[in-house]
Computed example of a mutant assay.
Amino acid sequence: MRESAAERHDRLLALVRERGTARVSDLAGLLGVSPVTARRDVEALAARGLLDRVHGQVSWPRAQGAPGGVAGSGSGLVLGLLAPSATYYFAEVIRGAHEAAARAGARLILRISDYRPEEDRARTEGLLAAGAEGVLVAPGWRGPEDRLAYGDWLAELPVPAVLLERRAAPGTPLDGLDRVSSDHAHGVLLALRHLLELGHATPLLVARSDSPTALAVRAGYTEALGTLGLEAPRTVIDSVPAETDPEGFERAVRALHEAVASGRASAALVHNDVDAIQIVQRLAELGVRVPEDLALIAYDDEVAALADTPLTAVAPPKRRVGRHATELLVERLGAGSGGDEDEAARRHLSLLPRLRVRDSCGASRTTTA
């Protein structure tokens, strides 16, 4: 497979980071590229502040510290962030991390895995090669099998790491890392309790199963039903993206339509916003009105407010997850350089979602925590 420019840049940065200073002509030979390509790569990286370039040589920027070094105060720190996506849910997480890094006087560099967990390790090593002294990592896991197959390496990183919007299996090496995540079980409980208070019987769950958030919502549904003293969980209606599996999406809509038409259900929680909007549109074509026939709450609150009938939604604190994780990483780096006796104390921080009430559940608008 042909090496991408980003991968070549990572190799170049690793070489300079290891040597401290190198001639561009030497880098061309080590990389196996032409001098013109090496010079172009160096110019691009220098323009981004990742390298210092003087008279045919490049060196590791002084602002980033010596290779392997750790700054003490947070000023001038370089932080890395690996995310599975830069859009939808994770756009807000990244924004929060960037804001916190800026406040700390640190620079944040980003890699995207596109939900390919087998590439997480290489992309994180690319962040280290680019000068990251600590990393925020949201692995591209889709399910428990990915966590088992592509998780242990995180606990072996040579720099401080904070796990982002992911949870490790109890007792595993990964469980010893700092982590910051949304408490999705609490979010599901908020939604179900609200629907029950509006007079509905046990709400249905319509959910995907292709991400850690989706699986956490499913697990939270079972937990919430037990907490609320309801009957054994009804079968979850499996949802899939309409654009990639139109037949599967139609099956989900038909299952929900049948539950409403038969009188078995008058309320539902749907993960995620996009699916919820499309489901509401398709239900309308089948004669089911929201909220008159079905009270509906979406999960994520990315685009829920933009639906024809604005959707009540559970809003995980995505931006705050990014902020708190970055602040924790900066604190960890500072404690590590100062020999703080509490440096070894790790933290698992869960942030509570909120319920933003709009028109789709048939209740007056408000926000609850």
Rank of each mutant, 00 (worst) to 15 (best):
residue 357 V to W: 00
residue 122 A to F: 07
residue 142 R to I: 03
residue 252 A to K: 07
residue 176 G to R: 15
residue 18 E to M: 12
residue 155 A to T: 03
residue 140 G to L: 01
residue 327 E to L: 14
residue 158 P to S: 04
residue 30 L to C: 08
residue 55 H to K: 04
residue 39 R to P: 02
residue 173 P to V: 11
residue 338 G to R: 14
residue 254 R to A: 12
residue 8 R to I: 13
residue 173 P to F: 09
residue 11 R to I: 15
residue 118 E to D: 10
residue 311 L to G: 00
residue 306 L to E: 05
residue 97 A to R: 05
residue 37 T to W: 04
residue 42 V to Q: 03
residue 324 H to G: 03
residue 8 R to V: 14
residue 349 L to P: 04
residue 233 P to W: 01
residue 2 R to I: 10
residue 158 P to V: 09
residue 344 A to L: 01
residue 85 S to H: 12
residue 104 A to D: 05
residue 195 L to I: 07
residue 167 R to G: 00
residue 23 R to T: 03
residue 87 T to S: 10
residue 244 T to H: 11
residue 332 R to V: 11
residue 24 V to D: 00
residue 24 V to K: 07
residue 142 R to C: 00
residue 44 A to I: 15
residue 296 L to G: 01
residue 50 L to N: 00
residue 234 R to H: 09
residue 115 Y to P: 01
residue 96 G to Q: 06
residue 364 S to E: 10
residue 21 T to K: 11
residue 305 A to S: 02
residue 239 S to I: 14
residue 260 V to T: 02
residue 331 E to T: 14
residue 109 I to M: 06
residue 1 M to K: 06
residue 268 A to M: 04
residue 344 A to I: 02
residue 225 L to I: 04
residue 286 L to A: 12
residue 121 R to K: 15
residue 59 S to T: 08
residue 96 G to K: 12
residue 177 L to E: 01
residue 124 T to Y: 04
residue 96 G to I: 12
residue 188 V to A: 06
residue 214 A to E: 02
residue 137 V to T: 05
residue 197 E to A: 10
residue 250 E to G: 10
residue 206 V to T: 11
residue 268 A to G: 01
residue 266 S to W: 08
residue 232 A to L: 08
residue 301 D to K: 06
residue 108 L to W: 10
residue 217 V to C: 03
residue 331 E to G: 12
residue 268 A to C: 05
residue 32 G to A: 05
residue 190 L to Y: 04
residue 131 G to Q: 09
residue 89 Y to P: 02
residue 229 G to V: 05
residue 327 E to T: 12
residue 108 L to I: 13
residue 226 G to L: 05
residue 151 G to C: 01
residue 282 R to I: 12
residue 284 A to H: 13
residue 292 E to R: 13
residue 172 T to W: 11
residue 29 G to C: 06
residue 270 V to P: 02
residue 4 S to L: 08
residue 314 V to A: 07
residue 6 A to Q: 14
residue 197 E to Q: 10
residue 77 L to V: 11
residue 76 G to P: 06
residue 89 Y to H: 11
residue 317 P to D: 07
residue 81 L to V: 13
residue 264 R to M: 07
residue 133 E to I: 13
residue 168 A to D: 02
residue 237 I to A: 06
residue 173 P to T: 08
residue 58 V to I: 02
residue 244 T to R: 13
residue 164 L to F: 07
residue 145 E to M: 01
residue 260 V to Y: 02
residue 113 S to M: 02
residue 245 D to S: 13
residue 356 R to L: 08
residue 101 A to N: 10
residue 67 P to Y: 05
residue 10 D to V: 15
residue 83 A to K: 07
residue 18 E to W: 11
residue 222 T to D: 06
residue 175 D to W: 11
residue 51 L to N: 03
residue 209 S to W: 12
residue 153 W to C: 01
residue 58 V to N: 00
residue 158 P to D: 03
residue 183 D to S: 05
residue 341 E to V: 11
residue 38 A to V: 03
residue 101 A to W: 13
residue 253 V to C: 03
residue 167 R to W: 09
residue 271 H to M: 07
residue 140 G to E: 00
residue 335 A to S: 09
residue 94 I to E: 03
residue 335 A to P: 02
residue 192 L to S: 09
residue 297 I to Q: 03
residue 213 T to V: 15
residue 60 W to V: 05
residue 267 A to Q: 03
residue 196 L to S: 04
residue 275 D to F: 11
residue 155 A to Y: 02
residue 98 H to S: 14
